[in-house]
Nucleic acid binder design. Sequence first.
DNA 1: ACTTCATGTAAGGCTAACCTGACACGTGGA
DNA 2: TCCACGTGTCAGGTTAGCCTTACATGAAGT
Lengths: 68, 68
Amino acid sequence: MNNKVREFREKFGLTQKELGEQVNVSRQAINAIETGKFDPSIWLAYDLAQYFGVPIEILFLFEEGKRK
Amino acid sequence: MNNKVREFREKFGLTQKELGEQVNVSRQAINAIETGKFDPSIWLAYDLAQYFGVPIEILFLFEEGKRK
DNA sequence: ACTTCATGTAAGGCTAACCTGACACGTGGA
DNA sequence: TCCACGTGTCAGGTTAGCCTTACATGAAGT
């Protein structure tokens, strides 16, 4: 699933580790989401969207055919 | 996690089984979400919100302290 | 009374979404 | 040169989000 996490994270001037601390997940979890290794849980998606101040549907791109 | 799935489902005049077929999950999955047994994946949350025509944040209530 | 339907729930199984710890690499500063 | 940092990735483990099958209940229709 494509998303704009890296884009927003860099705009906010944070490292993967720092963003992980803000939303209470490991830096590997942030990395895995940015690199498309797996999709976030609904809570993590919400926390990230809240942190960046955008709706979930803006931060994460739900394009049909890109499901795993 | 509280949500308005049952509310919207009944407004749309569907059974749990029928809603499950619309979003490609079992009726037990719909039931479990309505009764708060577990939270949906981000994709299922998206599909349900899309089906009902509302944002994810409207269909699902992300209240702090109600995490599992 | 019998059946059908909608719902609730439980058991058992599978995979995805996390975790920690570790190692590798490139960049930049002292 | 050496070290710290940021990132990528892998191995191994746990838990949550599904699945199918099955059984029980209540409401409603015949």
